[in-house]
Design a binder for these strands. Structure first.
Lengths: 239, 239
DNA sequence: CGATAGGTTGAGTCGCATCAACCGGGGTGG
DNA sequence: CCACCCCGGTTGATGCGACTCAACCTATCG
C-alpha cells in the first residue's frame, strides 16, 4: 500500500531489503479523507508525519479576508515534512484535493526509523531539500512570471513528479485540481485561470478534458515556462 | 567570530559546552566577499555549507531575459542549507548584498558535526524547517498580497529575525538592501517599490533613511501585513 | 428534475509595469 | 580641487495584465 512512498525514497538513497521492511512496518495508522477535507488545520500541534499514499492534497494558508494561497501540492509518495513534529504548531493547513489515503507516522516512529536506518535518514533529508527546491521555484514563478508562464511551469512540474512515481503514462496524467485550486496555487483569479488555460489549449500545448491532462507539445510548454527540470534533482541522486 | 551562528542554533537545541566547542572548531575557512558579489553560482557543485558570519546575502534565480527573483535573504547567523552538498548541483545563485564574511564548512565537517552531536543535528533540522516556513510565507505574500502588504510583511519579518540575533535595537535596524533588491524580493518593479515605501512612510509606519530602518508603528505595520510571527517559531523551541 | 459545483465569456476597472526625465551624493580622474 | 559620472532613488505619464462583477452554460447527483 505504501509502495509509492518507497518508490520515491528509493530515488534518494539505496534502501536495503531491511530498510524497506522497517519502513513498511511503521506505515500503519492508515486514514482516509474525503475530497476537500482538512488533514490538519492551521494551529494544530503536529503529532504525525503524513505520508500520502493515494490522492492529491495541498498545503495552504488563508488570509483574514478569505484570500487563499496553496503553497504546495502533494501527490502520492509525498511526505508532509519528515520532521514537522519538532515544531510546536503548524502555521498552515493541509487539505485534500481528491479523496486521500494517508499513513500517519508518529514522532517516535519517525525517530526510530532514522535511528535504525541511515539510508532512510538520508532519504528524508533529501526529501526536505527537494521540497525546498520546489518551493523556491514557486517563489520565482509567483514573483517574476506571467500567468501563462506560471501555469505552463506548474504543469511541467506536475508531469515530472507524477512520472517519477509512475503516475503518468507518456504525456498524460490525472490532474484533479479545479480551476479554483489552480488559481490559489498560481496566485491568480479563477476567471483568469480559465482564460489562460484556453490560451494554452489554443496554442496546442495542452489538452485538459475533465481531470485528464495531456501535454501535446511538452517541448514548447517548457519553453513558455522556462522550465528546467534540474531543480527537481530527478537523476543520479542515489550514491 | 561565529557567535551569531551559535546564538541562532541555540534557539533550536540546548548545546553543551562541548557542542559549542565542536562547532567552533569546524568553523574555519573564513572568506570575505565584496558587496554584490557571488558566493556561489547557479550550476555549481555545492561542496560547502556557507555560514553567514557578517553582512547580508541572498539566494536568487535569473530568468533567461534578465528578470531576477530574490528567493531569500540571509542575515548573520544564517546557514545556506545545512546539507546542500547532498545535491549534485545548485539550481540558484548565492549573492552578497553587503560585504560578507562567511565560513565554508565542508561536507565531511558537517557530517562529522551531526554524527558527534545530536543537539547540533537537531538544530540543523530545525534550521531547515524554519527556512521552509519562511519560504512558504513568501509564497503566500507573492501569490496573494498587495505591494503594500508584502513590503510591510518583509520588514516585520526582518525585524524579528534581526532581533533574534541581537542585530536590532528596539525598532531600529540596518536594512542594506537597495530598492532594486527589494523589488526583486517582493516581485515588484523598483519604481513601485519607491512609491510603496513612500506610502508606508507617509502613513507613519516606517522611517528609512539611508540604510537605517525604524519601525515607527510596528503594531500598525503588522496589521497592514497580516503578519503573525508564529511561523518563525521564535519561542519555546528548545526542549 | 431541480440544485449545485465547476467552467466560460464579456465589460469595465485597477494595480502595478514601463518608459522617461530628473535629482542628489559619493567616488574618481584630469 | 573641481568636473564628471554613475548609482540609487524619485516622480510623472501612459499602458497592460490581471481582477472584479455578472451572466450564462454544462455536467453531475440526490
Amino acid at each position: 500500500v505504501a509502495h509509492l512512498v518507497l518508490r520515491k525514497l528509493e530515488r534518494f538513497a539505496t534502501l536495503s531489503e531491511e530498510d524497506r521492511r522497517t519502513l513498511l512496518a511503521h506505515v500503519r495508522h492508515i486514514q482516509h479523507f474525503n475530497a476537500r477535507d482538512d488533514l490538519a488545520k492551521d494551529g494544530d500541534h503536529p503529532r504525525y508525519v503524513n505520508f500520502i499514499l493515494e490522492g492529491w492534497a495541498c498545503r495552504y494558508k488563508l488570509l483574514e479576508d478569505g484570500r487563499r494561497q496553496i503553497i504546495s501540492f502533494f501527490v502520492p509518495g509525498d511526505l508532509c515534512d519528515p520532521i514537522v513534529f519538532l515544531l510546536r504548531e503548524m502555521s498552515h493547513g493541509l487539505g485534500s484535493i481528491t479523496p486521500v489515503t494517508v499513513a500517519r507516522v508518529s514522532r517516535e516512529d519517525m525517530l526510530a526509523l532514522m535511528a535504525k536506518s541511515p539510508a532512510l535518514e538520508k532519504a528524508f533529508w533529501l526529501d526536505m531539500l527537494i521540497s525546498a527546491e520546489i518551493q523556491r521555484e514557486w517563489t520565482v514563478a509567483l514573483g517574476r512570471k506571467t500567468a501563462r508562464e506560471r501555469m505552463a511551469h506548474l504543469f511541467c512540474e506536475l508531469a515530472m513528479r507524477l512520472r517519477a512515481i509512475g503516475l503518468a503514462e507518456g504525456q498524460e496524467f490525472e490532474m484533479p485540481a479545479t480551476q479554483t485550486d489552480l488559481a490559489d496555487a498560481l496566485g491568480l483569479s479563477s476567471v483568469h485561470v480559465s482564460r489562460t488555460l484556453q490560451e494554452l489549449r489554443g496554442a496546442g500545448l495542452i489538452e485538459l478534458k475533465g481531470k485528464r491532462m495531456t501535454l501535446n507539445n511538452e517541448k514548447a510548454l517548457r519553453e513558455v515556462a522556462m522550465f528546467d527540470p534540474s531543480y527537481l534533482h530527478l537523476s543520479n541522486i542515489v550514491t
